[in-house]
Amino acid sequence: MTVPVEWYVALSAILFSIGALGVLLRRNAIIIFMSVELMLNAANLLFVAFSRYLGDLDGQVLVFFVITVAAAEVAVGLALIVVIFRTKQSINIDEINLMKG
């Protein structure tokens, strides 16, 4: 009894959407980062599902790379948040608008 790949796609889409909503709705920069991780995770799930579905190992290899990049991104991103917090005493992204034109 195998699960049709469409179901995985649907689950991935839902998780991705939740992640996107998190990025767009939350004001806490750390939670936004977590949401980004969730979106990456949704993408990874799709990679693995199709890897299985198509019988190709490359999908899993790509997931490996994505996880690596995500780890690096989180490290740098959290460092940035720490630095921003030191200067602004806040990680509310609605209070950070240095790039205002």
Partner: peptide
């Protein structure tokens, strides 16, 4: 210019 709010959101 007003569209460039500087807010990441």
């Amino acid at each position: 210019r007003r569209s460039q709010t500087g807010y990441a959101r």
